[in-house]
Design a protein around this nucleic acid. Structure first.
Lengths: 120, 120
DNA sequence: TCCGTAAATCGATGAATGTCGATCCGCCGA
DNA sequence: TCGGCGGATCGACATTCATCGATTTACGGA
């Protein structure tokens, strides 16, 4: 668990006199910042237990699921669940479709692919 | 992109008279709720572009990285970066180690494994 | 012992978030 | 045409969050 590597190239080679920077700055390409913003937005939407369970249910039952099935899963008021679904929709994770009185939600394929790939 | 499945088993079989529930409730085991809480906590910690980039840098440079290398990567004050590192540490994603004046951070192996596995 | 430096902590502040009740909108059956 | 239902939206509220400047802590060099 606790690693103890000799010292990586970016770390200070040894003790230096104070007053000088301990190491050369790490460059971080701006291109990856956009990717980081996208993935962080997805992670943020998943960063709530209710929303993560909503996505889990939607993924488990591949296909569309009626909102009236999702609300009783949680000890929350209906507007609250609707709000969480909207957050997931705005993040591009789920989509919705109305059929008469009922509304159905489904996971958008590949919406989580980038984050999943980054996580390994 | 836009699926159009016939109708999954959990959806109402057909149009029903209003006043009756449109479908039987989906059961969601309480055991998975704990897992959802854990993964949501991880996702929440990653749900900020700065923190996600911090983890990315730490993962790219396998090993320990000095805080003094991380701060200039962002247009943020040093206490702000320190705060984000604390959030990641509290979430169990990274660990820290002091060596003299400097502090080194590293990614804790398998900290992201559960979320990564769930994402597929 | 004293000073300078790296990093963490504190306190404040403005913005975002989760939750709810009340209300509104669309669609259906009567 | 009307009433009822599912679901979305609105407004309010308390809480959390991201950020900063100022301060504190810990360590090393002189």
């Amino acid at each position: 668990m606790n690693v103890d590597p000799p010292s990586l190239e970016l770390a200070p080679k040894a003790k230096r006199p104070a007053g000088e920077p301990c190491c050369e700055p790490v460059v971080y390409p701006d291109i990856e910042r956009d990717q980081a913003r996208r993935m962080a937005a997805i992670a943020k939407a998943l960063g709530d237990p209710v929303r993560l369970q909503l996505v889990d249910v939607l993924r488990t039952h591949a296909g569309k699921v009626c909102v009236c099935e999702l609300v009783p899963l949680f000890d929350l008021a209906q507007p609250t669940v609707s709000h969480h679904l909207k957050v997931l929709r705005d993040a591009g994770i789920v989509g919705s479709e109305r059929q008469g009185l009922w509304a159905y939600y489904f996971v958008i394929p590949d919406a989580l692919a980038e984050l999943a790939g980054w996580l390994g």
